[in-house]
Design a protein around this nucleic acid. Structure first.
Length: 279
DNA sequence: CCTTAGACCTGGAGGC
DNA sequence: TGCCTCCAGGTCTAAG
């Protein structure tokens, strides 16, 4: 569940379910899950805390408790499950690496097949964005100040491909591999174009399309391509609106040309070679 | 400083 | 069935 719209869906769901709920105890079984302090300390500190505020910056979840800022990053496959008891299914239970017992009897389970996800715990900051993990972060993709002028200033001296720049969280936080492809299709720009060849106008087009795609994706509760959730909801519907991503070999929905897949910065990249022009 | 392989992990899909 | 290779919504690092 990784890009901004999916993370927004997760944080909205957690808020609905867990506002002011207390954590009774914590059991972490994958030590590396806790990134900034020993996992035993994370267990001890979160026990007794109540979940007070829920927000997001880029792909990071920000959970504020009574005394701490609890930061989670789901990376590729991390997900939270709310259960009345530990899942019976061994395939599901095998990849649960942390269990938070709640004061209403439910269990908040963190499941992550590839173990890429990470959590951090900090003493409460004045503002969460003051935390060390956000010092290098770009503006959030939904921040109105993340506009064309902002993007242009961040990238116009760089030689990397525009697709790679959109994936760079120091530039804009929250865009991932699916939406980068979709945004550049909507902007009619070849993802391999060098940032240094893009005009201010190009950057404004990109950010305008970015806004409208993010809005639609969040309205559709994100994109679910490969479904690893076994029954528990949080599935999005935006995959039905994808114009290029995952559509290799299929006709472009606008011009009929065959969608191709190329590699850009080690990531699979889908584009319409007719609609999207190289700068 | 910038850019690009490689690493971190596991499992599903497809070829032979 | 087994074995192999490639692929996956992400990001940090080491090296050029």
């Amino acid at each position: 569940m990784p890009e901004a719209p999916e993370v927004q869906n997760v944080i909205d769901t957690l808020q609905q379910e867990l506002q002011d709920v207390g954590i009774v105890s914590v059991s972490i079984t994958h030590p590396k899950l806790s990134e900034n302090i020993p996992y035993e300390q994370m267990e001890e500190k979160l026990a007794g805390q109540h979940l007070r505020a829920f927000s997001r910056h880029g792909k990071y979840l920000i959970l504020q408790t009574d005394d701490y800022d609890w930061i989670c990053h789901l990376r590729m496959e991390g997900k939270f499950l709310l259960e009345d008891q530990l899942p019976e299914n061994e395939k599901i239970r095998k990849h649960i690496h942390a269990v938070f017992t709640l004061d209403d009897g439910r269990l908040l389970c963190y499941r992550d097949t590839r173990k890429f996800g990470r959590m951090q715990l900090y003493d409460k900051a004045e503002h969460p964005l003051d935390l060390p993990c956000f010092q290098q972060a770009g503006r959030d993709v939904l921040d109105p100040q993340a506009d064309g002028a902002y993007l242009y200033e961040k990238i116009h001296r760089r030689s990397i491909a525009i697709k790679s720049a959109l994936l760079d969280q120091h530039v804009i936080a929250g865009i991932g591999n699916i939406y980068a492809d979709e945004i550049l299709f909507a902007a009619k720009i070849d993802p391999r174009s060098s940032c240094s060849h893009l005009s201010l106008q190009d950057c404004q087009t990109i950010m305008n399309e970015c806004c409208s795609i993010m809005e639609r994706a969040i309205a559709g509760k994100g994109t679910t391509i490969r479904s690893f959730s076994f029954g528990h909801g949080n599935q999005g519907s935006f995959q039905n609106q994808l114009m290029v991503h995952t559509r290799k070999g299929q006709p472009c929905r606008e011009c009929g040309e065959e969608i191709i897949m190329v590699r850009v910065g080690q990531r699979s990249t889908y584009l319409c070679p007719n609609c999207q022009k190289l700068r």
